[in-house]
Design a binder for these strands. Structure first.
Length: 588
RNA sequence: GCGAGCGUAACUCAGUUGGUAGAGUGCCACCUUGCCAAGGUGGUUGUCGAGGGUUCGAGUCCCUUCGCUCGCUCCA
């Protein structure tokens, strides 16, 4: 299996280069890792994917508006979103076993064993259960390790740490606990082999640049690592100008940049990539309950065809999972059985996420994520409200009206219910009271469902799915290999190729040019007059052109042409008008 | 970032112990051609990934670098 993994993409990579889908960036200078160029066929393919997404996500809906934001934004955005902190992971490498470990995870492992060591007397005395204590240590280690790491170069902050380690009471104890020689270098041994580790080096995943003429770190800015944050930052502007009301969404397609340590698997993990993201804003469940008296959950087994006002976040999330799957299957033609819907487990979820579904495609190099549909609660908007000082709340007329007749007792009861619920979910109950009070005024920060897809990953998945080498046998019994890209007609780069049956008959040639010009006004067409007709068909098969039209002598008499189908290789005689009607039907 | 392997025409690949590059396919032109890559004639292609070194002479040996593949690692 691991042997066969080698070069599984080769035929596809080769075809993509030969036929102008994908080139290595800067190839004449030896290439540039993690960057790719889309050639004549590739850019048509990508444009078709993007416009199909835009069509179904924005144009065919009334509740989604578009945005095209700048790539470089105020650095504070990345502070608020958390990218500045979590994208700057310092890493250590073991000098002997060469393993790379996130610096805070080294501490993680040490903190765990140190706390365990400190608690051992309790277990020995029989006052604590060994298994439970071990689990507790693991949890504690996770929460204190980042602080331990921070403190490694700032001993003044030690007391902060001690607050979190009740068993410690002095710096001396900490050093003893961690088995560190006092005043020694604060780089820990390798957690795997005990070897010496290098100094932690920052691996910032965000590309940094300087804005303005002065080369000063104070003017540092970043290329966005995701498109989503601009939508949150512009939330109030869009709300004010789009005439939308919650629930509604904002869609954006654009480039994002991540300085990946290891770009691999062709275009799958690139340093520059394109995303299609939707942030769909919904009312918090508490607001839905106040307005409608109940919240529809998945337990109610709701019909997901049309959004309903009383849907809770859970149903909205499921709705978007279904929407996205339908689009993948029916619009861009990814077979249902070629991908899996993976629901992240509780401990895989980011702390602010309530649910996240990964749509994973079975690539030749493994099952990998194509798209994620996350329920991100009100985390992002709240972050930007906190950091910017600008409100991200919306005013909801229906909510205000619903709350108006509520008695003080009813409000108290509701508030207590929210407090209990928040406590159960591990959120600060003190904030619940404030949240409820805001709701009674008809205001809230919307929650968000985020379907986020990678254009390049999807393009690669579609190419992998479409690539077929089939054996064709002619009447004489000769077999040969036919290479075909079975792309969905909607996303195929070229829709129709037009051929004159022969090119040395001026009348026929002119007629074929007329047909070509006529079709070209509607679709991306390709003209080919060279070589035998069969060769021309096969050339189109390799770039996935679904239809070929051949103009022959009969066309001159009755305005009919032969229409050849890519997949079946069957031909039919059809009038030009009927052809246009048929293609309209298939391609729109 | 580390380790291993690899890098010759647009594609797939030859290239013997160092002697200034080949094949097939493709592509282009003309002829031919009445529907599935295989007719005829002619033509096109490379700083042998890049830079440096050894040598009279390097695709071939050495060093550096870039890129690709695999493994480790990472991955909102």
């Amino acid at each position: 299996m691991s042997e066969s993994k080698e070069n599984v993409l080769d035929p596809i990579v080769s075809l993509c280069k030969r036929r102008g889908f994908i080139f290595q960036s800067s190839e004449v200078y030896g290439g540039f890792a993690g960057f790719w160029d889309y050639g004549p066929m590739g850019c048509e393919l990508k444009n078709n994917i993007k416009s199909a997404w835009w069509q179904s996500t924005v144009r065919l809906r009334e509740d989604v508006a578009g945005l095209d934001a700048s790539i470089i934004m105020h650095p504070a955005i990345w502070k608020a979103s958390g990218h500045l902190d979590t994208f700057a992971d310092p890493m250590c490498m073991c000098k002997s076993c060469k393993k790379l470990v996130r610096a805070d995870q080294t501490w993680d492992i040490f903190a765990e064993s140190a706390i365990m060591e400190a608690l051992r007397p309790l277990i020995t005395d029989g006052r604590a259960d060994a298994g439970k204590t071990a689990n507790w240590c693991k949890g504690r280690a996770k929460s204190i390790a980042p602080n331990l790491f921070a403190v490694a170069n700032a001993e003044t902050r030690l007391p902060v740490i001690f607050d979190k380690i009740p068993v410690c009471d002095s710096a001396q104890t900490l050093y003893t606990l961690l088995a560190l020689p006092e005043g020694a270098e604060h780089v820990l041994p390798c957690p795997y082999c005990g070897g010496e580790m290098t100094e932690p080096r920052p691996f910032n995943m965000m590309f940094k640049t300087i804005v303005g003429p002065v080369e000063d770190q104070a003017n540092a800015a970043y290329l966005r690592p995701e498109t989503a944050q601009a939508i949150f930052a512009q939330f109030q502007n869009i709300l004010a100008t789009s005439r939308q009301q919650v629930p509604f969404g904002v869609a954006q397609i654009g480039k994002s940049f991540r300085n990946e340590i290891t770009p691999r698997n062709y275009t799958f993990r690139s340093r520059e990539f394109e995303q299609m993201e939707l942030e769909f804003f919904i009312k918090p469940d508490e607001a839905v309950e106040l307005i409608h008296g109940n919240v529809i959950t998945l337990a109610d087994n709701p019909d997901l065809a049309e959004p309903q006002p009383a849907w809770g976040w859970e149903v909205w999330h499921k709705y978007w999972v279904e929407q996205r799957k339908n689009w993948l299957i029916h619009t861009v033609g990814l077979p249902e059985k070629s991908f899996v819907e993976y629901w992240q487990t509780a401990d895989e979820l980011a702390h602010y996420a309530r649910a996240c579904v990964d749509i994973q495609y079975a690539f030749p190099f493994g099952v990998q994520e194509l798209e994620g549909i996350a329920a991100r609660s009100d985390f992002d908007l709240t972050q930007h409200q906190t950091h910017s000082g600008k409100t991200m709340e919306v005013f909801d007329e229906a909510l205000k009206l619903a709350c108006k007749p509520m008695t003080p007792e009813a409000r108290d009861a509701f508030t207590q219910k929210v407090e209990a619920d928040w406590t159960r979910r591990g959120k600060d109950p003190a904030l619940a009271r404030q949240f409820a009070a805001t709701l009674f005024e008809g205001k809230y920060i919307p929650h968000v469902i985020e379907p986020s897809a990678g254009v390049d990953r999807l393009a690669l998945a579609l190419l992998c799915n479409a690539y077929v080498e089939e054996t064709v046998t002619d009447e004489k019994g000769n077999s040969e290999i036919r290479t075909v890209l079975r792309l969905s007609p909607k996303i195929a780069p070229i829709k129709i190729a037009v051929f004159p049956l022969v090119k040395n008959k001026p009348e026929l040639y002119a007629k074929a040019r007329d047909v070509f010009k006529k079709l070209q006004r509607r679709w991306n067409c390709f003209w080919d007059e060279s070589g035998a007709i069969g060769r021309r068909y096969r050339r189109q098969d390799e770039v996935g052109t679904p239809f070929c039209v051949t103009v022959d002598f009969q066309t001159l008499d009755d305005n009919t042409v032969t229409l050849r189908d890519r997949d079946s290789m069957q031909q039919e005689r059809i009038s030009l008008d009927a052809l246009i009607a048929k293609l309209d039907d298939t391609l729109l």
